[in-house]
């Protein structure tokens, strides 16, 4: 199935939940709204002709230019992309899904952006989402156990965010 036809088909089924697609990139991607993510994923997983039964990775990319000079020239508004890489064991094809959310919910610093958890569809999402929450501060709603996984439980901040600053001290250990 060609890229465009596939996107059209998805759009037909899910309407406005499919926000857009980039078919020019090396790995083409489809953009989904946070509200529609669960339904789309369930469809991708269950539909026999697609059968995306394998979730390679869940991660997020923080789009924020911290340098004020470059920020003026940046071609994007600050936002957060949550990226899902899917694969089908049966058909040996892959797909990239993206969910774009604000860096902070309602633009209040400290309020984590929310994306529904897909751990109910792919068990592996459990740990990937925990890592994503830990390092990038994306809150996956309805996640069975959303705790930090790589950093200590009492760590402050989300290290992979572009505006993260390493704490000067952690339990008496100098940070920088």
């Amino acid at each position: 199935m060609s890229g465009q036809a596939f996107v059209d088909q998805l759009k037909q089924k899910f309407g406005d939940d499919i926000v857009g697609a980039n078919l020019e990139n090396v790995d083409p991607w489809v953009e989904v709204t946070a509200q529609g993510l669960l339904a789309v994923c369930q469809h991708l997983h269950d539909e026999p002709s697609l059968a995306f039964d394998y979730l390679n990775s869940v991660t997020a990319v923080d789009y924020l230019e911290t340098d004020p000079k470059k920020a003026a020239k940046a071609d994007f508004e600050p936002h957060m992309q949550v990226v899902y890489h899917l694969f089908s064991m049966q058909h040996k094809h892959s797909l990239v899904l993206k969910v774009i959310v604000p860096r902070w919910r309602d633009d209040v610093p400290g309020q984590l952006p929310e994306v529904p958890s897909v751990a109910g569809i792919w068990a592996t999402a459990d740990w990937h989402e925990r890592e994503c929450f830990d390092l990038l501060g994306v809150k996956f709603t309805d996640h069975p156990n959303l705790r930090r996984i790589l950093c200590p439980e009492d760590w402050v901040g989300y290290p992979l965010r572009k505006d993260y600053e390493m704490p000067t001290e952690y339990h008496g250990i100098r940070g920088r």
């Binding site: 990139n25 090396v26 790995d27 390679n56 990775s57 991660t59 990319v61 990226v83 890489h85």
Partner: peptide, 20 residues
């Protein structure tokens, strides 16, 4: 400009790298 994701078969399984 762009992004690429690739997995390879390393001894312990599929090692994936994602580059934006």
């Amino acid at each position: 400009k762009g992004e690429a994701y690739l997995e390879t078969e390393s001894p312990r399984g599929q090692m994936g790298f994602y580059l934006v």
